[in-house]
Design a protein around this nucleic acid. Structure first.
Lengths: 347, 347
DNA sequence: TTGTACGCGTTATCAC
DNA sequence: GTGATAACGCGTACAA
């Protein structure tokens, strides 16, 4: 009987078929703009109309069309994130905490992987920009020129994560890899080791590991010790680790301790080392899931992955006004986090 | 001089400031629709105009506004995915391969975690729907009623991943957990073990583990053996695993072999078992990163995580017409994948 | 092959 | 507090 109107507006030519704000407005007998206001700031709509609108929304299963809203307001509630990879042991926690913090405040995460390739990063940023995102997150400070330009021209908050580089313009949320290298070397020096080697990653593109090596070298020199770097040729991490420990521990003057560019290298060395005569202290970086389970368990550095994601999201939300500024730390552009030494059995 | 026109259309009231398709058209001295066509199907535009358009695009750094495009065409090139978690050892590969396959074809991934909560899944689906996504991916077949309704009403491809349930309407891409349970039991039975126990997950909400237990029980009965299930009370996986092996192996008639609901439980048991007198075969599920590194290395089942993500994306792209249908398998609604037994030292 | 007119569903602006 | 109107930037339909 009275159903003629409930059946949404017929005779649409291209509509999506979903209920629109106009359908809700008609059913609630108010103007469509009032519906819009009610959904955003209920306090600005009288209780009487509000109740009618709420009923209409429920009855029609109305879901606001964010695409239309984004077009009208020239910015969407989407935040894009470009991360080197998702499945590796490193970034997953950052992605997860970032996404969770965002969605708590009604923002959605658009995600893409770059695999440490500046070209892939560039194309992801370009694609994201098409969505007029509210903000953009990239990993590290090394981008193609085109990416730099796009990030600069987009009038939105940009966050660079993981690698703390105060000289850059983007909001920084991360830690200093140089400092981590210092931290690693000092930890071992304090333990009394003297011949301490650093094993680089055979994977190119891992520029942050080079920073850690620099920090290590600096701390060694400060302590009057000689830096000693080994570069594996094996590609697979476990193999590279084995190669390294065989080269460094099986010699006349073997290494007392070895710092590896990451925990996978260290794990490879550790597994190989179990069958070797000489014991040698090993230290990794990353605190992967395997590290506490190895025998002996691996001493390593734990990067604040989850913290980075959460803080990046928070800084973005602050910049967007979605979250109140937090006192003196308000909207800090520079957010330097600390890495923890996880002391276990291997060093 | 002739720059008056290049400087984009001024006097806009609300514009985003970015160059629009009209700016490009004006600079290239063509109609805006021709620009639109050139960007989508360059073959339908003459070489002369195409070159002019390309130059204008480059000069203005034009990035198409996907929000406006999505509104005009009533469907965006976004695909939403709701996954239980990102940082765990299970789903990351699926997310990554899914995202990569999508982005190869110009689609973007909108991601959210549900943490096995139907409420969180529902709110993520609702939020995604606001973007008029081209398709939606959820994990498993268990959803709230409201989610079911939304998925059914959205006139888009919906894919359920991981858990293969042929009776459901959505596109299925996954494996049968019951079948995996059968597979596990048969592997151990064939190895000659007789007293084979199954250790459940202490975490509620892991319904797929119950399916594996059912498959295990079924295979045991078929072989004339008695199913034997243990439910840990410890919450942490490693603790639960230790608790299980102590309960099952330290008794008058100890278990010959134990199947665990996942590799973490098995790892906990394995580490505890190293200090126990009685040796007992252990088998996990998941093939986590730690599993090959344990001593003894863990025999387990590897789910086709990466394959699931890629195939889910492929089926979606087929359904959307972005990829040609593939012969007889064309747009298959049912995609049952196999899990591989990874035979290692522990069983 | 190319162009014109209009609509997609919402929000900003301004008036009441 | 509420509403009418005009953008937002692009794609569809149809005409040339």
């Amino acid at each position: 009987m009275a159903d003629e109107k409930t059946a949404a507006s017929t005779r649409k030519r291209r509509g999506s078929g979903r209920a629109t704000i106009h359908d809700v407005a008609r059913l609630a007998q108010v103007g469509s703009i009032t519906v819009s206001r009610y959904l955003k700031q209920p306090s600005q709509v009288s209780g009487k109309l509000g109740a009618r609108i709420a009923a209409a929304v429920a009855q029609l299963h109305y879901v606001p069309n964010l695409v239309a809203g984004g077009l009208a307001s020239t910015h969407s509630r989407i935040v894009g994130m470009v991360i080197p990879n998702i499945s590796g042991p490193i970034f997953a926690n950052t992605i997860e905490s970032f996404s969770d913090t965002l969605s708590t405040h009604g923002y959605q995460l658009l995600l893409a992987s770059s695999y440490f390739s500046q070209e892939q990063e560039e194309s992801a940023v370009r694609a994201f920009l098409g969505w007029s995102p509210a903000a953009l997150v990239v990993t590290g400070p090394f981008h193609s020129k085109a990416t730099e330009k796009m990030l600069a021209q987009a009038q939105i908050p940009v966050v660079e994560t993981w690698d703390y580089r105060p000289r850059r313009k983007a909001i920084q949320v991360g830690f200093s890899n140089v400092e981590v290298g210092v931290q690693q070397a000092r930890y071992l020096i304090d333990k009394g080791y003297r011949r301490i080697a650093f094993v680089q990653n055979s994977v190119a593109g891992d520029l942050s590991a080079l920073d850690r090596r620099d920090g290590y070298a600096q701390a060694m020199l400060e302590a009057g010790l000689k830096p000693w770097t080994f570069i594996p040729t094996e590609a697979a991490p476990f193999d590279a680790g084995r190669q390294a420990i065989e080269a460094l521990a099986l010699r006349k003057k073997p290494a007392h301790a070895i710092i590896f560019a990451n925990d996978n290298l260290a794990a490879g060395a550790l597994l190989a080392g179990q069958r070797m005569p000489h014991q040698c202290a090993l230290m990794g970086f990353g605190d992967y899931a395997i590290s506490p389970l190895l025998i002996p368990s691996l001493t390593t550095i734990r990067p604040p992955a989850r913290e980075i994601g959460e803080l990046a999201a928070l800084r973005i939300l602050e910049a967007l006004g979605a979250v109140p500024l937090d006192g003196k730390n308000a909207n800090a552009r520079l957010n330097r986090l600390a890495c923890a030494v996880i002391a276990r059995e291997s060093a």
